[in-house]
């Protein structure tokens, strides 16, 4: 009964939505010309990075805040005493592979961070690769699950956001939020991205490592 009703509603919704999409007028010029025109002032040469950290920097600032809140929520609902599974024996092959892969992933992460200024890449991708490395190390039993966030972890997780916020506050005198002076924009963006990479990597890894019940905590 409920399946049928949901199915009919979904079909109707899909029909209306597709009709609306197909009925849209031809697109105007939109925002790309504006982005292209302002690229010279952005401090970077890759348009997506320019939008992410310069033109719409406040979106990214608030997004990092959302991530922090999500991690806080996760820590709040998580049981304080987790059932830690004894964990099956780890394949030595996996452990060796993880040992070999982890330094490579760090190199790839740093490269992605650096590449973000001029080509696809940036803090988000770099952080994702670093976090994936941490998860891999955890699954290979090289890195224990995290229990309570200790001081260094708290500093690392909030550090990037605080650097971003500090830059935003310092530039408030200029009139608008996160309006970098074009001469220093490149350096400021690199500073913010470096901070964000560390914070986001710890945050994304934390989403997994605070939840994980696999393996032993050392």
């Amino acid at each position: 009964m409920r399946r049928g009703a949901v199915g009919v509603a979904a079909l109707l919704f899909a029909g209306v939505l597709i009709g609306a999409l197909l009925g849209l007028p031809a697109p105007g010029a939109g925002l790309p010309p504006l982005v292209t025109a302002q690229m010279g002032n952005s401090g970077v040469t890759h348009p997506v990075t320019a939008v992410l950290l310069n033109f719409r920097g406040y979106d990214t600032l608030l997004e990092v805040a959302v991530l922090l809140v999500a991690l806080l929520g996760l820590l709040a609902v998580q049981r304080s005493e987790r059932a830690v599974a004894p964990g099956a024996a780890v394949e030595p092959v996996l452990q060796t592979l993880a040992r070999r892969a982890a330094p490579l992933m760090v190199v790839v992460g740093v490269y992605l961070l650096w590449a973000g200024a001029s080509r696809p890449g940036g803090a988000f991708q770099a952080a994702a690769v670093l976090a994936a490395g941490a998860v891999l190390a955890h699954l290979a039993r090289l890195l224990p699950a995290w229990s309570a966030p200790r001081a260094w972890l708290r500093t690392g997780i909030t550090g990037g956001f605080l650097v971003f916020l500090a830059v935003a506050v310092a530039l408030l005198g200029g009139g608008a939020l996160l309006q970098y002076p074009p001469a220093h924009a490149g350096l400021l963006i690199l500073l913010i991205e470096a901070g964000l990479t560390v914070s986001l990597a710890l945050l994304l890894a934390g989403l997994f490592l605070f939840l994980s019940e696999e393996g032993t905590r050392r």
Binding site: G30, L31, V35, L52, F55, R56, D59, L67
Partner: peptide
């Protein structure tokens, strides 16, 4: 269009959180 691309990039990270 780099503007929605940047928005979606943040959207993916928010989705995993």
């Amino acid at each position: 269009d780099p503007v929605p691309q940047a928005m979606v990039l943040t959207g993916i990270v928010v989705a995993v959180a």
